[in-house]
Measured scan of single mutants.
Amino acid sequence: LSDEDFKAVFGMTRSAFANLPLWKQQNLKKEKGLF
């Protein structure tokens, strides 16, 4: 994903996403069907 796409899908920047706990990152990915 480009940075723009990433922001559109997750509603946050990559750095904000990277600061989330791993389980939360994985839950978000599953919610968005990216897993």
Rank of each mutant, 00 (worst) to 15 (best):
A8D: 06
F35V: 15
W23G: 11
N19F: 14
G11H: 07
W23F: 06
F10V: 07
F17M: 05
Q25P: 00
A18H: 09
W23S: 14
S15C: 07
F17K: 00
K32E: 05
S15M: 11
R14N: 02
K32S: 09
S15W: 06
Q26N: 14
K24I: 08
N19D: 11
L22N: 13
F6C: 05
L22V: 11
F10N: 03
L1S: 13
F17L: 02
K7V: 09
Q26K: 08
F10R: 01
F10I: 06
M12L: 08
K30R: 10
S15V: 07
G11M: 05
K7C: 07
L28V: 07
G33K: 10
W23A: 15
K30F: 04
L1R: 04
Q26A: 13
L28A: 06
T13Y: 01
N27W: 08
E31Q: 11
E31R: 07
S15N: 08
W23L: 06
Q26S: 08
L22S: 13
Q26W: 06
F35A: 11
L34W: 12
F10L: 04
A8Q: 13
K7I: 03
M12D: 00
K30I: 11
T13W: 00
E4G: 03
K32F: 03
R14M: 06
A8V: 07
K24T: 07
G33M: 08
Q25M: 02
A16H: 09
Q26R: 09
E31M: 06
L34I: 11
L20I: 05
K24L: 10
K7S: 03
L20K: 04
F10K: 02
S2A: 08
D3L: 10
N27P: 00
K29D: 09
L22A: 14
S2M: 15
S2W: 04
F17P: 02
W23I: 04
R14D: 03
A16V: 08
K30C: 10
K7Q: 13
D3S: 12
A16N: 14
L28Q: 02
E4S: 15
F35C: 05
D3W: 04
T13H: 07
W23R: 12
N19L: 13
F17S: 02
S2T: 15
L20V: 03
L28E: 04
R14V: 04
L34E: 15
V9D: 04
D5R: 10
K24H: 14
D5A: 09
L1E: 11
E4I: 15
L20E: 02
L20F: 02
K30G: 07
F10W: 06
L22F: 06
K7P: 07
W23K: 14
F17T: 01
G11W: 00
A18C: 07
G33S: 11
D5G: 10
F17C: 01
A8R: 12
S2E: 05
F10Q: 01
E31V: 08
V9N: 14
G33V: 05
F6V: 01
L22P: 14
Q25K: 05
K7L: 12
P21M: 00
S2D: 04
S15F: 06
M12G: 01
K30P: 05
L34A: 11
W23M: 09
D5H: 15
N27L: 11
D5Q: 14
A18G: 11
L22I: 13
V9M: 14
L28T: 02
S2R: 02
K7W: 07
S2Y: 02
F6A: 03
K7F: 09
F35G: 12
K30H: 08
Q25G: 01
M12K: 03
D3G: 13
T13N: 08
L22D: 14
F35P: 15
A16T: 13
Q25F: 00
K29R: 10
F10M: 14
N27F: 14
L20N: 03
F17A: 02
L34Q: 13
A16S: 08
L28M: 07
M12Q: 04
P21K: 02
D5M: 12
D3V: 07
E31I: 06
N27D: 14
T13R: 03
M12S: 03
A18D: 12
D3H: 09
L20C: 02
L28D: 00
A18L: 11
P21C: 00
Q25I: 08
F17D: 02
E4F: 14
Q25N: 00
N27G: 10
F17R: 01
A8L: 10
W23C: 11
L20H: 00
N27C: 11
F17E: 02
A18R: 06
M12R: 03
W23P: 12
L34P: 15
E4D: 13
L22E: 14
A8I: 11
L20T: 01
L22T: 14
V9P: 01
K30V: 09
P21N: 02
L22R: 11
N27Q: 15
L1W: 06
